[in-house]
Design a protein around this nucleic acid. Structure first.
Length: 882
DNA sequence: CCGAATGAAAA
DNA sequence: TTTTCATTCGG
């Protein structure tokens, strides 16, 4: 209770109105009105209207009377709000990023997201249309689903938004994501579950996050929708009211609705209380849905709402009810939730075991448990509440916000329990259901056309101003153009280096295995849908791997995974280790070389296989995923993440995730190598290289440069702020193959040369759009020559850096020396050099790192003191030489 | 909280 | 044509 009701939202609304959002909205929102609002939206369908009308009156009173109702309303409101707030669906590129970011990160552990994004952009640019298409399709699907869910959704709430208040809202919104009850859940979770968990273990990832669930469900629906579109028509016509049965195919929505509607059972279970609050709505829903096909849009909401309501209303009784209702799955979930963290912890601990291999598998695999139902698992997932990111201040924000926003308060109030329940229901539904279906595509009549909308935000001025500035800069840069470069290179770099050779080998193997696993994974469960998605695949299962992999639960979502080397590097790597182990470093270098070669081989193999397999496009879906492969695996960090994500999902939830995962996973994941090749290929088929995988060049370069790049980038950016000059520098860097330039020259000519180079480069690497892209990225990218040489560019960069910074003689010199050794000869003959280069690159990187670490350090270094750096670099060099 | 990327939608 | 905003997460 609490006044919650009281809060009645009224006040809140008032606030809202103040915000502006809406007066209209406010009206709409108001409880009484709100319902009406619904009517209005639904207007299209008269039948519904009637029902609604009935409903309305009823509700009104109830609502006013009870808090629960408020909740319900809130839900609506939320939805509305959610609509407003709902996160917009990801576009193809974002999906791509999401799926590949981890890969990038693996390769370049040190790279920050920005850098990763750049790389991703490059990759994206390189992707073939067919390949992109998948993502595009998925995005579309996603979007469609989203729109269905939120008919009136406006992408840009209005410029106004600007934030301010919205900021809070935004944060909240984000969490919410798709809408639905998520809000409640969150609250609940927070309150109930573990509030503090934030520690994080959770992350659970999508599974946990209710919001996500909604999203997932949506996706699922959408997917199915596509599949079963035909069904819809049939079903719609028939749609008898009561019979929900319909085809399994019917749709998830339907099922949800049904569930939400609370089948008789529930009603029975629930006492009058529930009924009073929930019943009305539920009834409506039930009626409406059956009646008209059109309803869908409206229905969709309602069901959800209903669920929420029910759950909320039931909250008190909820547990008991749930049990009765039965659904073991739900029940389990609930339990899980309760158990919550403890279990989680346990689970986590247990998981640790997962190997890298498992990780890989995860990627591809979806499944967690195949089976259908229920029981099994239990684990962790519950924490939905935890919701993904706890990181965010959401909680706080929410709290604040809630008061601010009208609806929220209600929600919050609504009670956590309810949320949970709702969530469970949803899950259950999913499990049972089959999600499938449905969806009618038919019209989406959106109930609310324009609806309300958005919240208006107040002012966004802050941002605006900033952006502008940014833009300007960008434009400038654009003009300059980018050099691109590209790189994409892969690799491993330091981390890899660190990793032991042996490990590497093993890893490779693993990779292979993984692929196989993938196939297995795909099999898992059922559902036609899945099958479809899988489609192709057939694969043969491999028991072996499965065993290892299976260990547990699997992860579902995970995409990429993390594997990676990083850990090692970190552990060993880092400066400390470096210092301490010079020898180690050396080894690493060697290993790196090996890696590269290995990688190349692998890559080739993969490629070959792929190609052989056939059109990527088809198969693509299935996945190439594991390709990336590479090294390693064991990253603590990554592991953690993956674990967290994966583990959580146990049974039911797992399914959802799985589905989602499947879809998401179905998206092909391309290995870095692929991109690399492509990029190269583009320009020149690179036959030579291809033919010779040569260990060399590519790999080596890739990594180190990239890292460097990052560092460099950072530094540059800083400078940039100071001086615009950066552009020139960038250009200089950009230079690709400095034919002659080699060591030194580049810088000077930069301007002219740069252009030329850029042009050239452009040619080489087809990067995507230039506009936005160019800018900084140029700067960042290191250039690799075709030969693979690193390049003078790096040297230049270094130099520049040094210069900028003040020039550290030491560093610079050292670099020069290093390069000189390798470089000099290099130009003439590149062949064997590569390895050296790589070393050099590493050295440089190290230097960079140091620099990066502390500018101060740099200055010191310049003086000659340089403790850290100096030693390292030299060491490297020496090693290299030797 | 910004940023870097792309894309879709809105203004 | 220009803004917003979606995802990511290190700084």
């Amino acid at each position: 209770m609490k006044g919650g009701g009281g809060g009645k939202e009224v006040p809140a609304e008032g606030e809202v109105s103040a915000k502006q959002r809406p007066k209209r909205k406010c009206l709409q929102w108001h409880p009484l009105l709100s319902k009406k609002k619904a009517l209005d939206f639904s207007e299209e369908e008269e039948d519904e209207d009637e029902e609604e009308l009935e409903k309305v009156p009823v509700e009104c009173p109830e609502r006013s009377g009870q808090a629960p109702e408020c909740v319900a309303m809130e839900d609506d409101g939320e939805e509305d709000s959610s609509e407003q707030r709902a996160r917009r669906p990801m576009n193809a590129f974002l999906l791509f990023c999401k799926r590949h970011r981890s890969l990038v990160r693996q390769e370049h552990p040190r790279l920050d997201n920005r850098g990763a994004t750049k790389i991703l952009a490059d990759w994206w640019a390189v992707l073939e249309p067919s390949e992109k298409q998948k993502y595009t399709d998925m995005a579309k699907e996603y979007k469609d689903a989203f729109m269905k869910a939120n008919p009136g959704y406006k992408w840009c709430p209005a410029t106004s938004k600007p934030v301010k208040s919205p900021t809070h809202a935004v944060s909240n919104a984000r969490k919410k994501a798709w809408s639905l009850p998520s809000n409640n859940t969150k609250d609940i979770t927070v309150a109930k579950k573990v509030p503090k968990t934030d520690s994080s273990p959770q992350l659970n990832f999508a599974m946990a996050d209710p919001t996500k669930m909604g999203g997932l469900s949506m996706l699922l629906l959408a997917g199915e929708h596509a599949l079963t579109a035909r069904e819809i028509s049939s079903s719609s016509s028939q749609s008898g009211a009561g019979d929900v049965a319909k085809h399994t195919g019917k749709s998830a929505l339907f099922q949800l609705a049904e569930i939400s509607s609370c089948p008789p059972q529930i009603d029975g279970c629930k006492s009058s209380e529930c009924r009073s609050a929930a019943a009305p709505q539920t009834e409506v829903c039930g009626l409406s849905q059956p009646n008209s096909p059109d309803l869908p849009s409206s229905c969709m909401r309602s069901p959800l709402f209903q669920l929420a309501e029910i759950s909320s209303s039931g909250s008190q009784a909820s547990v008991s009810e749930v049990k009765q209702c039965g659904q073991s799955a739900l029940f389990q979930l609930a339990e899980m939730c309760l158990a919550s963290e403890a279990e989680k912890l346990e689970a986590l601990s247990s998981q640790p075991a997962m190997d890298s291999s498992s990780l890989c598998a995860q990627d591809s695999a979806p499944d967690t448990t195949p089976t259908v139902d229920l029981p099994t698992p239990t684990p962790p997932s519950s924490p939905p509440a935890s919701c993904k990111k706890k990181k965010k201040p959401n909680d706080v924000a929410k709290g604040e916000k809630s008061p601010g926003s009208p609806k929220k308060p209600c929600k919050k109030r609504s009670s956590s329990g309810s949320d949970l329940e709702s969530l469970m229901y949803t899950i259950e539904a999913v499990a049972k259901g089959a999600w499938g279906s449905e969806e009618m595509e038919t019209t989406r009549k959106r109930a609310r056309p324009s609806g309300g909308l958005s919240d208006q935000p107040s002012s966004a001025e802050k941002k605006k101003t900033k952006p502008k500035a940014k833009k300007q800069l960008r434009t400038k840069e654009d003009e300059e153009e980018r050099g691109e470069g590209e790189d994409c290179k892969p690799l491993e770099t330091e981390g890899s280096v660190l990793s032991h050779e042996t490990e590497l080998k093993t890893e490779c193997k693993k990779e292979v295995d993984v692929k196989v696993d993938r196939a297995e994974d795909s099999e898992p469960h059922i559902s036609t849908e899945q099958q479809i998605s899988k489609g192709v695949e057939a694969g043969s299962p491999l028991p072996n791997k499965g065993e290892e992999k299976d260990l547990e639960v699997k992860p579902v979502v995970i995409q990429t995974e993390e594997r990676d080397i990083e850990p090692k590097p970190e552990a060993c790597g880092s400066r400390k280790s470096e210092r301490s182990c010079k020898g180690a470093l050396y080894k690493t270098l060697v290993s790196e070389g090996m890696l590269t070669s290995l990688r190349a081989n692998v890559d080739r193999g993969k490629r070959g296989s792929m190609r052989g397999a056939v059109s990527e496009s088809e198969i693509g879906w299935t996945d190439e995923s594991c390709n990336f492969s590479q090294p390693a695996a064991s990253n603590p960090k990554k592991l953690k993440k993956s674990k967290s994500k994966e583990e959580p999902v146990p049974g039911n939830l797992g399914k959802l995730e799985e589905e989602f995962e499947k879809k998401f996973n179905s998206l092909p994941q391309y290995s870095p190598l692929t991109f690399d090749k492509k990029s190269t290929a583009v320009t020149k088929r690179k036959k030579a290289n291809v033919t010779n995988p040569l260990e060399s060049p590519t790999p080596n370069k890739g990594p180190s440069p990239s890292q460097k790049k990052t560092l460099f980038h950072k530094i540059v950016s800083k400078y940039k702020h100071k001086k615009e000059k950066a552009g020139t520098l960038e250009k200089a860097i950009a230079q690709p193959d400095p034919t002659a330039s080699d060591t030194g020259t580049a810088k000077s000519d930069s301007s002219c040369a740069s252009l030329a180079t850029e042009t050239r480069k452009m040619g080489d690497v087809p990067v995507g759009s230039q506009k936005r892209k160019a800018r900084k990225s140029k700067i960042t990218h290191l250039v690799r020559t075709a030969d693979g040489r690193l390049s003078p560019a790096e040297a230049d960069k270094v130099k520049e850096l040094t210069q900028d910074q003040d020039g550290k003689p030491l560093t610079h010199e050292t670099l020069c020396n290093t390069e000189s050794c390798s470089t000099d000869p290099g130009p003439a003959e590149s062949g064997s050099l590569p390895a050296f280069f790589s070393l050099a690159a590493l050295a440089e990187v190290a230097a960079m790192e140091n620099m990066h670490r502390g500018q101060r350090a740099v200055s010191v270094a310049a003086e000659g003191q340089v403790k850290d750096m100096a030693p390292q670099t030299p060491v490297l060099i020496s090693c290299a030489d030797q």
